[in-house]
Simulated scan of single mutants.
Amino acid sequence: MQLNAGCELTFDVQSPTPLVLMLRPRSGAGQWIIREEYQITPAVNVTEFTDLYGNLCQRVLAPEGPFSIHFSATVQTADLIDVSPGAPYTPVQELPDDVLHYTLPSRYCQSDQLGDLAEQITDGVEPGYDQAEAIRKWIHTNIKYEYGTSDASTSAVDTASKRVGVCRDFTHLGISLCRSLNIPARMVVGYLYQLDPMDLHAWFEAYVDGRWFTFDATQEQPRGNRITVAYGRDAADVAFTTQFGPMQLNEMKVWVDLAQPDMNESEKKAEKAPTVSASVGSNQQTDGVV
């Protein structure tokens, strides 16, 4: 399916502020970037680099005053995601070097503190894909999805205790529980077609049987038509904006629609996503995944 997706962010900048942006998806497994448009107002110099996780990042210096970022793309997406019940666990000694670090605890994913819960959830379940799916299902069933119940400091341990959160919290918990079983897991952020309410989204991937599989604890059933923007250990690695100075996010709009000849029609349908003053990364980051 071809989708038009994008976001628009508007800021007030108190003084010239360096920014790192992470808004451009790249072609890869399950997606092909057909067209993209990136507009920054007022115009500034932009340099781009690829981070440690393969994400496309842009560096800019935002001038004082009103500042806006508009990104839109047309993307060919996979209608289905791969599922593989019974796929075996990959022993740690067989993991590729670039996957091994996804077994370790990270800032918001304290997998070393959640082993007992992971064992309870997966008791009697075959190691590998079925364990990751049991974790996804348990989170979907036992964690309540509710806006405004978490903030920039909320971790997987907090979510396991409070049993409430939003997609980033569901994702951190899923990652942590998988890692506690020595299953590599990573955070993914991007867009999901027909997400309700519309917003930027987060889910996790687990590495079993020698490859990555998608798991989304906010959804009842596996769903395709996803556009991946970034991968990381947790939300600290995948913030859509990271600022190094005083600036305020005023508004964020997000849209995902079936591809149409006139992109403006898609943008007219953009829903206003909740404005967040901070991400789960730090008080200088915005991930929009709330």
Rank of each mutant, 00 (worst) to 15 (best):
E146Q: 15
F170G: 08
G128T: 10
D158G: 01
G165A: 06
I143C: 12
M187T: 07
R186E: 06
F213R: 04
E119T: 14
A156N: 06
I121W: 09
A152M: 13
R136P: 04
V166M: 08
H172M: 11
G148M: 08
S161E: 13
F204L: 05
S180W: 02
E126I: 00
A118V: 05
P184Q: 00
V189R: 08
A152I: 00
E119R: 14
L195P: 00
H172I: 08
Y191D: 09
D196S: 15
M198G: 12
R186L: 03
T149D: 05
V166N: 00
Q120D: 15
L173F: 10
A206S: 15
D169P: 11
R179K: 09
E133N: 13
Y147H: 10
T149Y: 03
T171W: 05
M198W: 11
S150R: 05
V164H: 03
T159P: 12
Y207S: 09
I121T: 01
A156F: 03
S161W: 02
V188P: 02
N142I: 01
D130N: 15
R168L: 06
P127D: 11
G128L: 02
V125M: 02
Q194N: 13
V188G: 03
D151I: 00
D158L: 06
A152E: 14
D199N: 15
L181C: 07
G148F: 10
I121K: 11
D123E: 15
A206Y: 09
G165H: 02
E146S: 13
Y145W: 12
H201N: 12
L173C: 12
Q131P: 10
L177G: 04
K137I: 04
T159N: 08
R211L: 03
V164I: 13
T159Q: 07
A202Y: 02
G128K: 05
I135V: 15
V164S: 10
C167N: 01
G190P: 01
R179Q: 05
H201K: 11
E205G: 13
C178E: 01
F215D: 03
A202K: 07
S161F: 05
H201D: 07
A132D: 10
R136T: 03
D151E: 08
V166W: 03
A152C: 11
A202C: 12
K137T: 13
D158H: 14
I175F: 12
S155E: 06
V164T: 14
V166S: 03
E146P: 02
E133K: 14
H172K: 08
I175C: 11
S150T: 15
A156C: 07
T171K: 11
F215A: 04
D199L: 06
S161R: 14
Y193P: 01
F170M: 04
E126Q: 13
Y145Q: 04
S161Y: 08
Y129C: 04
S155P: 12
H140F: 08
R186G: 03
S155A: 07
A132L: 11
S161T: 15
D169V: 06
G165F: 02
W212A: 02
A134F: 05
L114D: 03
A132T: 09
A160L: 01
T149K: 15
K137V: 10
N142W: 11
Y147V: 04
K137H: 07
G148V: 11
A185R: 10
Y207K: 11
G174Y: 11
E205F: 08
A152H: 15
